[in-house]
Nucleic acid binder design. Structure first.
Length: 180
DNA sequence: AAGAAGATTCGCT
DNA sequence: GCGAATCTTCTTA
């Protein structure tokens, strides 16, 4: 699913209007993956990871930021895909309001920035992303560029697993230095 | 009940 | 390139 979501569209309704973006970077968090929030079992915070696939799992991190994930397996199995970066397509005004001073290129570049620009918080946790609503996803339409595989970013466990995916050369991908 | 770590970002050197 | 900021959640005592 992490691969599939590259090129998919995020549709988010903000007070300023509808924001649309194209996913360019994701990471997979598998069952039996010590780096995954689901690894130690279901809790109040991560319960949507254990629900049906295609629902929003949003968590708060470092006292400042939210990260937006998509639950990725059948009910009862804990797994998800972190949406790390996207390319803004429409409704940039609403995103700019939430990321003052940022260049357009950086509006959705990085998981914390993406959630901030699209106003995604714990309030959106559990939303069905395959149904009409304030936040949903549309499958990729156009042919996609080459997808690169790499190590995941910012982890202290399972650091060698190749579970990050991004479009080669896309300027909206986070951490240029992390290209490997 | 207390403490440590965390799927990040930004500013400063 | 490095370290602080900031607070929630989970683990351990």
């Amino acid at each position: 699913m992490a691969r599939f979501l590259i090129g998919a569209t995020i549709v988010r309704d903000l007070p300023e209007g509808r924001a649309v973006a194209r996913i360019v970077e994701t990471e997979a968090y598998l069952p039996m993956d010590a780096a995954a929030h689901s690894f130690r079992g279901k809790t109040a915070r991560n319960r949507t990871l254990f629900g049906r696939r295609g629902h929003a799992y949003v968590y708060y991190i470092y006292g400042n930021y939210y990260c937006f994930n998509v639950s990725a397996e059948a009910a009862g199995v804990g797994a998800g895909v972190l949406i790390r970066a996207a390319e803004p397509l429409r409704g940039l005004e609403g995103m700019r309001v939430r990321r003052p001073g940022a260049r357009d290129r950086d509006l959705l570049r990085g998981p914390g920035r993406l959630a901030s620009a699209l106003a995604i918080t714990r309030a959106e946790d559990g939303l069905d992303l395959c149904a009409a609503g304030p936040l949903w996803l549309a499958a990729p339409l156009a042919p996609r560029a080459e997808i690169v595989t790499s190590r995941r970013i910012g982890l202290t466990k399972e650091v060698d697993r190749l579970l990050r995916f991004y479009e080669r050369g896309n300027p909206h991908v986070s951490g240029a230095k992390n290209a490997g």
